[in-house]
Every structure is written in C-alpha cells, then in structure tokens.
Nucleic acid binder design. Sequence first.
DNA 1: GGAGTTGTTTAGGA
DNA 2: TTCCTAAACAACTC
Length: 265
Amino acid sequence: MPELAEVEFFRRRWDVGVGQKVVDVALHADKRIFRGNDLATFQRVLPGAKLVGSEARGKQMLFRFSHDVWLGVHLGMTGELRHEPQEFSPGKHDHLVLRQSRQSLVFSDPRLFGRVLFHHGPHAPEWWSRLPPALTSDEFTLDRMMAFLKRRSRSPLKGVLLQQEFFIGIGNWMADEILWRAKIHPRRAAGCLDGAEAREVWKAIRFVCAGALRIVSKDYSDPPPSWLFRHRWEKGGRCPKDGTELGRETIGGRTTAWCPQCQPE
DNA sequence: GGAGTTGTTTAGGA
DNA sequence: TTCCTAAACAACTC
C-alpha cells in the first residue's frame, strides 16, 4: 500500500510513543525485514532509550531515540505501523514490537517486503542523509527534473516516475495520477517531452503530492472521485474528466491505468 | 487453483 | 559503461 502520503500516515501512528522509553523489545529475528542488522546490539541498546521524534522522506521513515539510537523503517508493499495496548501478544505478522509504559509500538508486514534498519551513533545514518530532496521542497525544480528525464530518455515515463533515486515517494497509483493530470501517455519516452509537457508533469507532481499528503495522511481517507485514484481499479472504470473507459496494461513493469482520450499515445 | 497485488533488488541483456 | 527489463522475494485475496 504505502506511498508518500500513506507512509506519513503510518509514521504519525507512532507519535503516541514520543517521550516514552522503550522497556522491552519483541521481534521475529529470522524474518528478512531484519536482514543486514546487528540484532544483538539492537536488542541490547534499545531498551531504556526514549523515542524522541521521527521524520518521513519519500517512502522512508527514521525514528530517533535517545542514547544515539535510530530506527529506519520501510513498509514495502504491505507493511504498517500501529500501536496496541502494552500487554499485547504479537500476531504472526507483527515482526517488531517496542513495548513502552503506556502502549506497544508495532511494525507488521505479511509479505515481508518491508525493511527495518537499526543504527547506533551520534548522527543520522548515511543512507538517510543521502536521500534526494522531497518533491514538495524548493530543491525539486523543473530544471533538475528535466535533467533526470534526459538521463532516462528511452524509458517509458511511467517507469521513470517510479525511480526512487529521484522521484522519492512516488508509487504506482501516484505515477498514474500524475500522468493523467499532465495528459501524457504513460508509455511516452522520458526524453521526448517538450518543455511545456515537462512543466505539466512537474506541476502535476506538486499537485498530487500536496493533495495526497493533505487528504490521505490525515486519516487514510481516499482522494475525492475527481481523482483517477478512485476509478483506476474498478472493472470498466471511466475517466472522471470525460467518461472514457480507462486503458489498463503493464507499462514500466507495473499495472498502469490511463485515459486513452486525455492521454493519446 | 491461478492470477494479481499502491515495492525494491538483482541478474543479465542491449 | 550505462541503461533497461524481467524475475524474485512472500502472503494474501478474488
């Protein structure tokens, strides 16, 4: 599920634990979401550390604790964060439980495509500081976007919008929503856009990111019916602008929905 | 039972 | 070298 706004929604669910110490840690150590971690140190250092705050950037989250402890979380396809009562027995997919005095913070992930990255040190981990700028920041400029599209000039735009090394936080539904609003066919090559078309894509990215963060991350509401989002998975779904039946195909390796009328090839 | 899923990594071909 | 695609990962739903 989680793209930009959904990730922000789940991050806030752990806010309830800010200011409280972790008193105990329960985890499924053999699950692949923990790969690459020094779990012995993790389990030794985390108890006693207080959750101080957190940030989300794209699909990544970073939770900051006292005692130089940091916890990175990626939700993959089916991960979620939630809180449960302090005395709570973890289910099959509840792979990480941080018990605090008033509740337990839980990371759950049935398909195990998510990831937890533990870090111990005075500064945020390097993988975090190297993330590209948020698409909602002033650093995400039309010029920088066009330079990236040029470097991927032969790929379909749909696939390029999913590349997290630049379009951080965009996932399958957001990419379709963006191209639909920019009136660009998802199979068009990234290098073939003229200046005006690139500008439409850039504006649509800003609009979709801001709208999703406002609507979805507040309480996990769906965007309104005027968005493609509400129709893209319906059988016989139609374009909310002109009623044309949507096209559906695999493009850039992912199932893609578009309006053949608004987005001519 | 088979196909499909809002994500990422990797192997291998172009 | 660099770019691009398909498969793999794993569990669940329709």
